[in-house]
Amino acid sequence: MGKTASKLSKDEISSLKKSTYFDKRELQQWYKGFLRDCPSGQLTNAEFLKIYKQFFPFGDPTDFANYIFNVFDKDKNGSIDFKEFIIVLSITSRGSKNEKLEWSYKLYDQNRDDKIDYQEMLNVLVAIYKMVGPMVRLNNDEATPELRAKKIFGLVNKDVNDMLDMDDFKVICEKDNQVLRGLDLYGGLV
């Protein structure tokens, strides 16, 4: 999908229809828009950050955008092609709750060891707090990223020395829907 043809081929459409929740017309529209914004057919990290800065003008979305970019960039080549983009958009906007949980889990599991440690959780939370800036008022028990991370770990009776697995993460998301709320950003795009 790295090429910049103006239209998706029948094979590409067929493949993407199997991999996403979009129909042929939607895929073609998204592809046209993707090429308009990324004529090279590749979305770079810098371009991705520029998009996030439009959504969060009062904070600094740099770190969070980098974390999200790394989850989008499945082949780890330093850019997002249309296939990577549309598959993630499909999951985050129309996927099942379980698909969204799995995708979000990857965001927090930065070293890809299938566990989330306290530092990984804290890194993402610090990035979120920097991104939203002063625009969000928080409860006292979530006033800092450290307090929020400890609260999240406490939801499954774990402390900062423990690791979270996918089952823990599912329980956390059942008890606190804010953990997945960041995905709502994409819901408005579709």
Rank of each mutant, 00 (worst) to 15 (best):
G133V: 07
K151A: 01
F55G: 02
Y108S: 04
I87V: 13
T62R: 08
D63L: 01
G78D: 06
F55R: 09
P145D: 12
R137W: 13
E99G: 08
E47S: 15
K151D: 03
A149M: 04
K151F: 09
T62C: 15
F55E: 07
A127E: 10
Y105L: 05
V71Q: 03
D113M: 09
S79L: 00
F55W: 09
V126S: 07
K97S: 01
D159K: 05
N70I: 00
R137P: 11
I116D: 04
F69C: 12
V156M: 05
I68T: 14
G95I: 10
V88N: 08
I91T: 03
F58T: 14
Y52I: 00
D117I: 03
R148S: 10
L49H: 08
D60G: 11
R137M: 09
Q119P: 05
W103F: 11
L138C: 10
A65Y: 08
E146K: 01
K53I: 07
G133T: 09
E99R: 10
D60R: 02
G154R: 13
N77T: 13
F69R: 01
G59H: 06
G59Y: 02
P145L: 14
D81T: 03
Q42R: 14
I80M: 03
F69D: 05
K53Q: 13
N140Y: 08
A46H: 09
V124F: 11
V132F: 07
T144F: 08
M121L: 12
K158M: 02
Q54G: 15
R36F: 11
E84H: 07
D113C: 12
M131G: 05
Y118P: 13
F55D: 01
K100D: 07
V124E: 11
D141T: 00
E146L: 08
F55K: 00
T44E: 11
